[in-house]
Simulated scan of single mutants.
Amino acid sequence: MKTVTRILAGTVVLSCALSGMAVGAPAHASDAVRATTQRTLDAPARAAGLTTAGGGYPGWAKPTVRRQARDASAPRLVAGAQRGIDVSRYQGNVDWAGWAAKGITWAYTKATEGTYLRNTYFASQYNGAYKQGLIRGAYHFANPASSSAKAQAEYFVANGGGWSADGKTLPGMVDVENNPYGPTCYGLSTTAMVTWISTFAARYKQLTGRDVVIYTNSPWWSLCTGNSTAFRLSNPLWIAAWTTKLTSLPGGWPTFTYWQYTDSPIDQDYFNGSYARLQVLARNHL
């Protein structure tokens, strides 16, 4: 039985779980065992303030940018680029009215991680953004060491990561970056990592009809996927680069859709397009 994520008058409502599975439960018995063994935060994650209750969030490892000379082909923000923020359990009750007053037009909220963690503030954050007129989306923090890509895509959609063609809901995002629980690449080869991401993207699209946004940083993508170009024409890129100017993009992506450029005083981002283009993405495709 397929989980349905419904949006009624701007409010997210979650109903029956996939394959008879209780919402929040691991998809398979083996996933429960792996989730337990892969949930010890390493020293860098603890130093960054992560907790097992909150898990990872975009840019938790503070991605560094190698300084390069900027040339005419370097990626650039278009005129009228829209400012947004991304939030998780760590932000708690967000002052959405205050952020809207500062010119923020969109926001993403963490929904899930692996098949073991749901953001306890998800409903209030996701619906709070909507009530302030922001275009909102949800994201999933991937843990490829803990369970299958298919199971994690299903868990994400079952717990708020779906999509509705209402012009106010952005396609889901999968956050693939540094592992807060151990080996940077989650113990996978570059080939296995590309397969994992491909499987997640395919299952998400099968469930929602949308191409999932991929969030990553260049050093991780190069190390853990071999700088794969497999997603360059299908999945929008959300690049993490805390700098004032981008010099290059990973994976052969010809452009970026989102750019996380700072975490002060909260994770702040650009949508690389006008408000009208943001609405188009919320309705259908770029």
Score class of each variant (00 low, 15 high):
residue 7 I to F: 15
residue 11 T to S: 11
residue 26 P to A: 03
residue 27 A to S: 09
residue 38 Q to R: 14
residue 39 R to E: 13
residue 42 D to R: 13
residue 43 A to F: 04
residue 45 A to K: 10
residue 47 A to M: 06
residue 55 G to S: 13
residue 60 W to Y: 14
residue 61 A to K: 07
residue 63 P to K: 08
residue 66 R to S: 05
residue 71 D to I: 11
residue 75 P to F: 01
residue 76 R to I: 00
residue 80 G to F: 05
residue 85 I to L: 12
residue 92 G to P: 12
residue 94 V to Q: 08
residue 95 D to I: 10
residue 96 W to G: 03
residue 97 A to G: 15
residue 98 G to D: 08
residue 100 A to P: 04
residue 103 G to L: 01
residue 104 I to D: 01
residue 105 T to L: 09
residue 106 W to I: 02
residue 108 Y to T: 04
residue 109 T to W: 00
residue 110 K to N: 07
residue 113 E to G: 07
residue 118 R to M: 14
residue 119 N to A: 14
residue 120 T to V: 12
residue 122 F to M: 12
residue 123 A to Y: 15
residue 124 S to I: 13
residue 125 Q to W: 09
residue 126 Y to C: 04
residue 127 N to D: 15
residue 128 G to A: 11
residue 128 G to P: 10
residue 129 A to Y: 07
residue 132 Q to V: 07
residue 133 G to C: 05
residue 140 H to G: 08
residue 142 A to W: 00
residue 143 N to M: 09
residue 147 S to H: 06
residue 148 S to D: 06
residue 148 S to A: 12
residue 152 Q to I: 02
residue 153 A to H: 10
residue 155 Y to N: 09
residue 160 G to F: 00
residue 163 W to G: 05
residue 168 K to R: 15
residue 170 L to R: 07
residue 171 P to F: 12
residue 174 V to H: 00
residue 174 V to N: 02
residue 176 V to Y: 15
residue 179 N to S: 08
residue 182 G to W: 08
residue 184 T to Y: 01
residue 186 Y to A: 02
residue 186 Y to F: 15
residue 193 M to E: 08
residue 196 W to Y: 15
residue 197 I to L: 12
residue 200 F to Y: 14
residue 202 A to F: 00
residue 202 A to T: 13
residue 205 K to T: 04
residue 205 K to W: 00
residue 208 T to E: 01
residue 211 D to Q: 13
residue 216 T to L: 02
residue 217 N to L: 01
residue 221 W to V: 02
residue 222 S to P: 00
residue 223 L to Q: 15
residue 223 L to E: 09
residue 227 N to I: 06
residue 229 T to I: 11
residue 233 L to S: 13
residue 235 N to R: 03
residue 236 P to M: 04
residue 237 L to R: 00
residue 239 I to N: 09
residue 240 A to G: 14
residue 246 L to F: 06
residue 246 L to N: 00
residue 251 G to Y: 02
residue 256 F to C: 00
residue 259 W to N: 02
residue 271 F to W: 08
residue 271 F to K: 06
residue 272 N to E: 02
residue 280 V to D: 08
residue 284 N to C: 06
residue 286 L to D: 11
